[in-house]
């Protein structure tokens, strides 16, 4: 694999992580992380949507009229999101999760990661690297989502993927399930990430 392609894939997962470094797509990362299962489905959905939208927009990049660029991109993204939503609703195992995610599946459309990658990468690059870039960013996003969900489900319900892991004597901490805790947890993840990688610290 050539170096540039490797860079495209690895960069979004660590050094240029969309959530902790670029601060994109926070909305959904907070709302869907009460349970690991929901977070995992959300992570996969976002990865697919970013990847495929980047691919399609990259294919269209030379023909899109500049004036309606944003609208055309949004329409492409919205189409992908609706497809994902419809497929989730149709799958026997995913139906309940789709219901639990409710409006947040729709909000993938305005997840800044998707539009951000199209604007910053897909419009200037060939389809295959764009696809990989989109997928990698989705994975970087999903990684943080799963870390946050891991702590919230473990401390908030004493379970992981719905299976009890902490002894019954553990009293679930309700604060962890409430939305503000997700922000504090995310703050701590950023703290850890930046303490480890000093280049990312702000002055």
């Amino acid at each position: 694999m050539d170096k540039k392609l490797k860079e495209t894939i690895l960069n979004p997962i660590l050094k240029g992580n969309p959530i902790t470094v670029l601060i994109l797509g926070i909305c959904s990362s907070l709302a869907v992380t009460v349970q690991l299962k929901g977070a995992l489905v959300m992570a996969i959905s976002v990865t697919l949507v970013t990847g495929l939208s980047s691919l399609v927009c990259s294919l269209l990049r030379n023909s899109i009229p500049m004036r309606v660029r944003i609208i055309v991109q949004l329409v492409v993204v919205a189409m992908m999101v609706i497809l994902v939503d419809q497929v989730l609703k149709a799958g026997e195992g995913t139906y309940a999760i789709d219901k639990q995610l409710s409006v947040y599946i729709g909000l993938i459309i305005t997840n800044c990661i998707v539009m951000g990658r199209i604007e910053a990468f897909a419009l200037g690059n060939k389809p295959i690297p764009s696809l990989l870039d989109g997928l990698a960013n989705g994975v970087g996003y999903g990684l943080i989502l799963i870390i946050v969900a891991f702590f919230r489900e473990l401390l908030g319900s004493g379970t992981l993927f719905g299976l009890r892991v902490l002894p019954a004597a553990y009293v679930p901490n309700n604060l962890v399930i409430l939305p503000p805790f997700a922000l504090i947890l995310l703050g701590c993840i950023i703290w850890a990430h930046r303490a480890w990688d000093k280049d990312l610290q702000e002055k």
């Binding site: 309606v68 919205a78 189409m79 497809l83 419809q86 497929v87 609703k89 149709a90 026997e92 139906y95």
Partner: peptide
């Protein structure tokens, strides 16, 4: 261009919605 995009997208979506309706 925009008309074409809208028509294509609407067709794709209507098709999937119709196909997946029974299992939904």
């Amino acid at each position: 261009y925009t008309t074409l995009v809208v028509v294509v997208v609407a067709a794709v979506l209507a098709f999937t919605a119709m196909k997946l309706k029974p299992s939904q």
